[in-house]
Amino acid sequence: MDATDEQLVADYRSGSSDAFETLYERYVRRLYDFVYFKTHHRETAEDIVSQTFLQAFQNLGTFDSDRGVFSAWIHRIARNLTFDHFRAMKLSVPIDDAWDIPSNADVARDADATLKVEKVRAYLQTLSPDQREIILLRLWQDLPFKEIAAITGKSEAACKMAYKRGTERLRDELLIAFLLLFLS
């Protein structure tokens, strides 16, 4: 049976470099995708993920497994660093992620990502950042609610409620007319 995150953290604190590598393997792609879906920019995502790991493992002494799981803790660091990234831009409107970037803002985004998300942008922009995060974790990162709850630090029930509310609009309106439905 695989060691839990918390066990690996304890092992790392005891000096195990293997524990670090296991945690790194477990989280690097997940964190990268998590950040990329908030920034839509490869270099920015790489930068933030690098900062996240560095900050997490330099401050691992502050992690208290009695107060929450490692997954939520490290995702919170990534989320906060993403906030900081957008705050540093001093945009006219403070934003949490790339979805809320004003149309006239000069913010780098990968052209192909911009293109790919364009048809669902209007819908995703209507969601609160919390709802959007949960929906994208479920639909784009294919994570079960149990893990989403761990990442967001909410209960599974709260995640399902936010997910349900976020998807309510989808029952009423065809997002993409029928121009783009089967692009894949």
Partner: peptide
Amino acid sequence: LNVRSILVSRPDTQFSTEFKQRLLRELT
């Protein structure tokens, strides 16, 4: 239909093995 639209709109995150290995080296 709408869920399908969202699923197919998932951008390629361009996650690279090169980045993964480089970051591991730097962090270590």
